[in-house]
Amino acid sequence: MLTRLLSGDRPRSLVLTVILLAILGALAFAPFLFPGVRSLETAARICIFIVLVASYDLLLGYTGIVSFAHTMFFGLGAYGVALASDAMGRGWGALAVGTVAGALAAAVLAAVIGMFSLRVRAIFFAMITLAVASAVAVLVSQLSAITGGEDGLNYSIPRELTPAFRLGEVMGVRINGKLLNYYLVFTCCLVLFLVLLRVVNSPFGRVLQAIRENEFRAEAIGYRVVYYRIIATCLSASVAALAGSLFAIWLRYVGPDTTLSFTIMLDILLMVVIGGMGTIYGAVIGAAIFVLAQNYLQTLMGSAAEATAGLPLVPDLLNPDRWLLWLGVLFILSVYFFPTGIVGRLRTGR
Rank of each mutant, 00 (worst) to 15 (best):
G98C: 00
A126D: 04
R224K: 11
V272K: 09
M301P: 09
L179M: 11
L242C: 09
V100D: 01
L269M: 09
A22S: 07
Q142T: 11
T63S: 08
I332C: 14
L14S: 14
D57S: 02
V138Y: 08
P320W: 00
L208G: 05
Y227Q: 12
N181V: 03
V170R: 11
A106M: 03
L130F: 11
I289L: 14
L6F: 10
L167M: 14
V66C: 14
I249M: 13
I221Y: 00
W250Y: 12
P31R: 02
G244T: 06
L24E: 04
R90H: 09
Y79R: 02
G36V: 05
G255C: 09
G341F: 04
R12L: 12
G255A: 06
V140D: 06
T259D: 00
L194G: 06
S55D: 08
G149M: 06
M271L: 08
A287C: 09
S245K: 01
S13L: 11
S236E: 01
R174E: 15
N181T: 01
V329W: 07
M88Y: 12
N295I: 08
V66I: 15
E306R: 10
T3E: 15
V284R: 04
I175L: 09
I50V: 15
A122K: 15
L246R: 01
F193Y: 05
G148E: 11
R198H: 14
A110P: 03
G276S: 05
L197V: 08
L5V: 03
L109F: 14
E169S: 07
G205R: 03
G91C: 00
A101C: 12
M271R: 06
V18W: 09
G80P: 11
A145R: 05
L2I: 13
M127W: 02
S39G: 07
L58G: 08
T340R: 15
L76A: 12
G278Q: 07
A218N: 03
L330E: 04
S134P: 07
G222Y: 08
V254S: 09
V185M: 11
E41R: 09
S261I: 14
P315D: 02
A28V: 11
A210H: 03
V100C: 10
A307I: 01
I221L: 09
R159N: 15
T3C: 14
L246V: 05
D57R: 10
A145C: 09
I221V: 13
W250V: 00
L167G: 00
A248M: 04
L179R: 07
V185S: 11
L300K: 07
Y182Q: 07
L330F: 13
D267F: 12
L313M: 11
A94C: 13
V15D: 11
Y79H: 08
G80A: 01
L20S: 08
G91H: 00
F204C: 06
L194F: 04
T17P: 00
R212W: 06
V226W: 03
N319V: 01
R90K: 10
A137P: 01
T279Q: 13
A28F: 11
R252Y: 09
D321E: 14
Y182C: 04
V140F: 10
G61P: 00
V132Q: 13
G80K: 02
L167Q: 00
V120M: 15
I65D: 03
T42C: 13
L260Y: 05
V199L: 12
G302C: 09
Q298D: 12
M265Y: 03
D267H: 14
Y281H: 05
V51Y: 00
A110L: 08
L317W: 04
G172E: 06
